[in-house]
Simulated assay, not measured.
Amino acid sequence: MSLRSLPSIILAFILYNVVVFVSGGTDVLKSSLFELNMLSGGVWQFTVGDLIVLLTLFLLFAEIVKSTYTSTSSLVDHGLSMVVFIACIVEFLLVPQAATSTFFLIMVATAIDVVAGFTIGIRVARRDLAIGGAVD
């Protein structure tokens, strides 16, 4: 098993848990990293939770791009993505510190990773197998 087989979105899952459990609670997610004064007069705050969601979106993009490749490691990657998704569901339902919108969005990103990975993988495999015939 290569390192490429590991779903990179697990980094967001691990980062969330490290931030929340090391700091002792979910209040750290609301702490501001920086503020920008907008032309409208409003103030935009970028929080730790926003940073984790942003990182999750970038990792989801990488996972979707990775799912377009067909190799033996892609099956392992899809299986491990499912394991990460199940771990997210279990933590969301059973751990009080995971009952936040930030963690919910991480969980949704892992669900999209699982569904997109299998859907894109099946589509790419159908295209690769249809060497001489038409594909729907």
Results as ranks from 00 to 15, higher is better:
P7E: 12
P7S: 04
I9H: 01
I9Q: 02
I10V: 07
I10D: 02
I10Q: 01
I10C: 09
A12F: 05
A12L: 06
A12P: 02
A12K: 06
F13I: 04
I14T: 07
L15T: 12
L15C: 15
L15M: 13
L15K: 04
Y16Q: 03
Y16M: 04
Y16K: 04
N17C: 09
N17W: 12
N17G: 13
N17Q: 11
N17R: 07
V18C: 03
V19T: 05
V19C: 01
V20I: 12
V20S: 09
V20C: 03
V20G: 05
F21M: 09
V22P: 10
V22R: 00
V22N: 02
S23P: 00
S23I: 06
S23L: 04
G24C: 13
G24L: 06
G24V: 09
G25E: 05
G25F: 03
G25K: 08
G25H: 10
T26Y: 14
D27A: 11
D27N: 11
D27C: 03
D27G: 11
D27Q: 15
V28K: 13
V28H: 08
L29R: 15
K30V: 00
K30C: 04
K30F: 03
K30D: 15
S31P: 00
S31A: 05
S31I: 13
S31E: 07
S32Y: 12
S32W: 12
L33N: 14
L33F: 04
F34H: 15
F34N: 09
F34L: 13
L36C: 08
L36I: 15
L36N: 08
N37Y: 06
M38T: 09
L39M: 13
L39D: 15
S40H: 03
S40D: 14
S40F: 04
S40M: 02
S40V: 11
G41H: 08
G41T: 04
G41M: 07
G42M: 02
G42S: 12
V43S: 02
V43I: 10
W44F: 14
W44L: 13
Q45A: 10
Q45K: 07
F46K: 02
T47S: 12
T47F: 00
T47I: 14
T47L: 12
V48N: 14
V48R: 07
D50I: 01
D50Y: 00
D50T: 10
D50M: 14
L51G: 08
L51C: 09
L51V: 09
L51E: 12
L51N: 12
I52A: 02
V53Y: 11
V53T: 02
V53L: 09
L54I: 10
L54T: 00
L55R: 05
T56D: 11
T56V: 05
L57C: 06
L57P: 07
L57W: 11
L57Q: 08
F58W: 08
L59H: 15
L59V: 12
L60C: 05
L60S: 09
L60V: 11
L60F: 02
L60P: 06
F61W: 06
F61K: 01
F61Y: 15
F61R: 08
A62K: 03
A62N: 12
A62S: 11
A62Q: 01
E63Q: 09
E63T: 00
